[in-house]
Design a protein around this nucleic acid. Structure first.
Length: 424
RNA sequence: AGAGGAGUGGCAGAGUGGUCGAUCGCGUUGGUCUUGAAAACCAAUGUACCGCGAGGUACCGGGGGUUCGAAUCCCUCCUCCUCUGCCA
């Protein structure tokens, strides 16, 4: 959530930024926010005055009672009913004004960073760099959904039987490979200074609001209505919410955390030809990295996260490219995002395997995550996160890119983790 | 799951209807003293909102209620502790 103060002081930047996201009439939107906030302040001031008067009267009644002047006290009491009604009315007006302000603030996405380009959608993203050689495969190459059947390592039909579409069952070397990825990613993260976290994978409403999944993406999360808990769509939610309502000391920063969790997404309405096999699932595994930084350091940290994720892809010997998302394709809460896409050689298309973002203060404002500077002044921190990495598409591209007549070769770096060199 | 108890400022812990935003202590910060340090002593020390300021308002687990007035009384939810039961 953006801060009203920020919209007041940086109005021009906000308007330009929202234009990059193709928001209609940002001037009007921001104007509405500011006038709602002005009205809110006005109501607050009026209410405070009425309450101040009531408090005065209550005190004077107290004093009269102690002096035993009961009749005078009763007379003063008579005056309070009107004030009471007034304060009730003002309170209600204030509450609905605050609600209206919050509703509109929830609808405004983050302001893109200056380097982010304008654009309508995925086609307008900037390709920052491309790495590695796309492999030339043998004649009989097949997409991963054929390969997993051929070698019997992942079973979608069994998943349908047990749960439904989008819940694969990993078997034998398939399961073992998942475990290899998990350990590889967490070991690498630890070497890079990320502390390992195992968070809950069910979260409450306050956590969903804290990182911005609620109310915007309510329909994307599985929800247990009885307990009012949500299955996490990403470890970002529980891990970042560890810091909700916290004031950190500068010495504690930066905070760098890594967490492996299963992730659950309804993906309502997004099924189609492009989402066969492992390309899109309801349940998948991911290692997520989360950072909390001083505002001045956050963009340097974003670059470092990008470099780190790329190092994983290099070690896995996967050809990849780095995109900077344009305003129209960027997530609601992000100020700048890099997407990493790996080449999937049989599908002959790029698959997104990581998305690293700087949220600046957009999340920390909702989370009330702040730090104290040397003068004891409190300021919002910057939060960042990224996948490092999402398992299924990595697996898909490993299977497709490394297939040969005699089997699928496992990348060298994974061999010690997997305990085998070939799937054959 | 049942019975009982409890949730107050960084910590500890008073406060059961009226100058209580909250006693005292510890901690922290500043000062005095000292060659320096410790000790001692003095002072300051929650958060948010409104206001140029003086100042005002709200907050004693969350929400609601009673009352002229609530940390204090009532309802409800949450969390923790003890005992009993159940269970990976």
């Amino acid at each position: 959530m953006l801060q009203v103060a920020q919209l007041r002081t940086e109005k021009e930047r906000a308007i330009d930024g929202l234009k990059k996201r193709n928001i209609a009439e940002p001037e009007k939107l921001i104007g509405t926010v500011i006038s709602l906030d002005d009205e809110r302040k006005d109501l607050q001031t009026q209410l405070d005055a009425v309450l101040a008067e009531s408090n005065q009267i209550a005190k004077s009644i107290g004093a009269l009672m102690q002096q035993g002047k009961k009749e005078e006290a009763e007379q003063v009491k008579a005056k309070t009913s009107e004030l009471k009604q007034q304060s009730k009315n003002l309170q209600e007006a204030l509450q609905s004004k605050e609600q209206a302000l919050q509703d509109i603030l929830y609808q405004i996405p983050n302001i893109p960073f200056k380097d982010v380009k304008e654009g309508k959608g995925a086609d307008d993203n900037e390709v920052m760099s491309e790495h590695g050689e796309k492999p030339t495969l043998y004649e009989g190459k097949t997409p991963h959904w054929e390969l997993i059947k051929k070698y019997d390592i992942i079973d979608f039909d069994l998943g349908v039987k047990i749960s439904g579409a989008g819940f694969p069952v990993y078997k034998g070397k398939g399961a073992r490979l998942q475990r290899a990825l998990l350990n590889f990613f967490l070991d690498e993260a630890e070497k890079q200074g990320f502390k390992e976290i195992q968070p809950p994978i069910l979260i409450n409403e306050a956590s969903g609001i804290g990182t911005g999944q609620l109310p915007d993406k309510e329909g994307q999360m599985y929800h247990d209505k009885e307990q009012d808990l949500y299955l996490i769509p990403t470890a970002e939610v529980p891990v970042t919410n560890m810091f909700r309502d916290m004031i950190l000391d500068e010495q504690e920063l930066p905070i760098k955390l890594a967490a492996y969790t299963p992730c659950f997404r309804k993906e309502a309405g997004s099924w189609g030809a492009h989402v066969r096999g492992l390309n899109r699932l309801h349940q998948f595994d991911k290692v997520e990295i989360v950072q909390i930084h001083l505002p001045d350091n956050s963009y340097k940290a974003l670059e470092e996260m990008s470099t780190y994720v790329q190092s994983l892809l290099q070690k896995l010997e996967l050809p990849y490219r780095v995109l900077r998302l344009c305003g129209g394709d960027m997530g609601f809460t992000s100020a700048m995002t890099y997407d990493m896409e790996v080449w999937s050689a049989a599908q002959e298309r790029w698959l997104e395997v990581s998305s690293v973002s700087n949220f600046e203060t957009y999340q920390s404002n909702r989370l009330k995550l702040r730090y104290k500077d040397e003068n004891n002044k409190k300021h919002l921190l910057h939060t960042l996160n990224g996948s490092a990495l999402a398992f299924p598409r990595i697996l898909a591209s490993i299977l497709e890119n490394n297939q040969t007549e005699k089997g699928i070769r496992i990348p060298e770096v994974l061999q010690p983790y997997a305990g085998f060199e070939w799937i054959d």
